[in-house]
Write a protein that binds this DNA or RNA. Structure first.
Lengths: 179, 179
DNA sequence: TGGCTCATGTAATCTGTTACATGATTCT
DNA sequence: AGAATCATGTAACAGATTACATGAGCCA
C-alpha cells in the first residue's frame, strides 16, 4: 500500500468515482499540495480491486461507459489505519528558490520574470481556493466540511506567503536595477 | 543534465566541495525547499566530471582523504544557461493535508497529535532560518548575500504560515473536543 | 575496544511521469 | 468532417530512496 492507494480510498469514501474522475478531483482540489498521474491511478485501482479493498460496476452515462469504483469495508479499515499512522515528512521541491539562491550568475531581469510567473500562478491558486471556499460555505449543510475548510485555509495562508514574497522580491530586484 | 546536476554546479560555484559536504549543505541550507540523497549526488559528480564540467583533487585533512570538486568554465556556462531556462513547476506533497482532508474517518486526538508534530518541526525550521539569517547579517560583507537573504525570507514567511495554521487548527480541534 | 562520525560509492528497489494506443461521444 | 473531450489503460523511461559495503579516524 502506497500513498496513492490511500488518496484513492479517501476520495472513494465520499462517493463512487471512475479513474478519470479521481484524476480530475486531485488536479483541482488537491492541486496545491498533491498530484497523481494516470500511470499511478489506474494500476492502483487495479491492485485495490484485486485485493478486495474496492469494487466497481460499469455505469453508462449518455452512451459513455464508466468504471465506477466504490470502497468496501476492508478499504475503509485500511484508510482508518493509515490515518493513525505517523505523517510522512512532506516533500517539497521549489526550483525557483534554487535559482534565486544562485542568481548572482544571472541578471535581474531574468529573475524578475521567473518570479512574476510564480506570482501569477499562485494568485490563480488563491482565486481557485477562494471560489472553492465560498462554494462550501454556501452549502452550509452543517455536515462537517470543517476539515476541508481547514485544508483550504492552509492553501490560502501559504499561497499568500508566496505572493507576498514574490511582490517584495520583485520590488527589491527592480530597485536594484535602477542603481 | 538534471536538476541535481545544477544544484551541485551552483554549490561548487561558491567553493570546492566533496560529495559528503554537498549532501550536508543541501540538508542544512536547502532543507525547507530541496533534498538530495547520496544515490543522486555521487553518480551526478561522476557524470559531471566525465563530461568536463567539474574537476577534483584529493585533499588530505587530518589524515582523512576527501575528493574536492570544483567547477570548470564549462560547468559555469551550463549553470548560467539553466538559470535562464523557465522555472519548473514546484512539486509539493503534504501528507498531513491529505489526512486532514479525510479526518472525519479518525478522531480529533489523532489529528491534533499529527498537527503538533508538524508545528514543532516547522518551529524548528524557523529557528534554524533565523540563525542562518543573523549569521549572514553579521558578515555584512556588502558582497551580495542579498539573494540568499531573500531565500531565507521565503522560508520564514512560509514556515510562519505553517505554524500559524497549525496553532489555529489545533485550537479549533480542541474546541470541538469539549463539546 | 567499540561505537560514532567522516567519507565514498553502488545495486536494488520503488515511485512517478510521459508518451502512446485505443475508441467512443460531443461540439463546432 | 474534424477537433476536443471523455475514458481506460500500459510500457518505457526517468528520478529518487534505501540499504548495504567498505574503510579510516576520533572519542569515551
Amino acid at each position: 500500500m502506497r500513498q496513492t492507494d490511500y488518496v484513492i480510498l479517501g476520495l472513494l469514501s465520499e462517493k463512487p468515482l471512475s479513474g478519470y474522475e479521481i484524476k480530475k478531483l486531485i488536479d483541482i482540489r488537491f492541486r496545491f499540495f498533491w498530484s497523481e498521474s494516470y500511470g499511478q491511478i489506474f494500476p492502483s485501482l487495479k491492485r485495490l480491486n484485486a485485493d478486495g479493498l474496492i469494487e466497481y460496476y460499469i455505469e453508462n452515462i449518455g452512451g459513455r461507459n464508466q468504471k465506477k469504483y466504490s470502497v468496501k469495508k476492508k478499504g475503509l479499515d485500511a484508510l482508518r489505519q493509515w490515518l493513525m499512522l505517523p505523517v510522512e515528512k512532506e516533500s517539497i521541491r521549489i526550483e525557483l528558490l534554487l535559482k534565486m539562491y544562485f542568481s548572482n550568475y544571472t541578471d535581474n531581469e531574468t529573475m524578475i520574470n521567473h518570479i512574476l510567473k510564480f506570482e501569477t500562478s499562485h494568485k490563480q491558486d488563491m482565486m481557485l481556493l477562494n471560489m472553492f471556499n465560498s462554494e462550501l460555505l454556501k452549502l452550509q449543510e452543517d455536515e462537517s466540511h470543517e476539515a476541508i475548510l481547514k485544508v483550504i485555509d492552509f492553501g490560502l495562508k501559504v499561497n499568500k506567503a508566496y505572493v507576498d514574497w514574490a511582490r517584495e522580491t520583485i520590488k527589491f530586484l527592480e530597485g536594484r536595477d535602477i542603481k
